[in-house]
Design a protein around this nucleic acid. Structure first.
Lengths: 144, 144
DNA sequence: TAATAAGTCTACAAAGTTAGTATACTAATC
DNA sequence: GATTAGTATACTAACTTTGTAGACTTATTA
């Protein structure tokens, strides 16, 4: 399951995608509209900023705005930033690899193959899911 | 990520698969061989027993044994029993559905589709992964 | 250039989950 | 009826997640 933090991040980014290239958006506005505790949201946006997904502007009229192109920001990237590994086992994680404590011998482990399969399919789908596509989909769905 | 509990369960079940139809195996033996804290293992095996995956025999010469056919016990079943939902969002879970708090309107939510895709692929792979296949794979790998 | 708006940073606290332990009880076998 | 081994309940410790508080920095604009 995704953490709340991660879900908040996705919703905040969708909100900012809808205002892409329309200047900075004040944290308080995002917090209010998306019902996210402001202080918690601050920490989230800061991480996204440090990862160069967002940029910010200080002072009056400041706020956060999407820096990357929404067609290039994927759910994969967001989830990895917020929640870490995608894989269900540390020993099959590409970005957060660690040997399994429980496993005696990784090369003869019969479990790994299944989880490598799950990982690859998950990566494939989450890589295809960009902010641009999500927002587009929401527009279509809300018209129907 | 799978919990330790779930990984312990998988390893214990693989161990019991290797002794399928060879009579009950004492908890202590499983705990020793798989390096699982005995008391923790007890709770795990009990859950698997209540789900009819295992049966137990009390008294001297007692222990746990695989009740279901190892070709019918899937990773999907084990993970659901130990860790619960497979899906990354509660609102796309088949067995543990709950509406997303963060979501204003499920029918117009552009995020769900991606996670439905992830869920379906994950279910497919985990359903194919039976204890019998895993043990067979381990034998092949350890000979190579 | 001072007032103010708004992001940054550090530290903390409460709540929830996971992992593991202790103890007493029950049932089956020899 | 002594012993072996599973059953059940309750507890504890550690860790993670979620959320809060407050002081600080930077940029704008009057």
């Amino acid at each position: 399951m995704l953490s709340k933090k991660c879900k908040y991040a996705i919703h905040a980014l969708i909100y900012l995608t809808e205002r892409y290239e329309q200047g900075p958006v004040h944290i308080q506005e995002i917090a209010d509209k998306q019902r996210i505790p402001k202080k918690f949201l601050e920490a989230i946006l800061l991480e996204l900023r440090n990862a160069n997904v967002l940029h910010s502007k200080k002072g009056k009229g400041g706020g956060y705005y999407l820096y990357k192109n929404p067609e290039e920001v994927t759910l994969l990237e967001i989830i990895r930033l917020m929640d870490g590994a995608i894989a269900m086992l540390p020993c099959v994680s590409l970005n957060y690899y660690e040997p399994c404590e429980e496993c005696k011998n990784e090369t003869t482990c019969g479990i790994r193959d299944s989880f490598i399969g799950v990982r690859d399919e998950t990566l494939r789908i989450l890589t295809e899911s960009t902010l641009a596509k999500i927002v587009k989909r929401e527009k279509i769905l809300s018209k129907a």
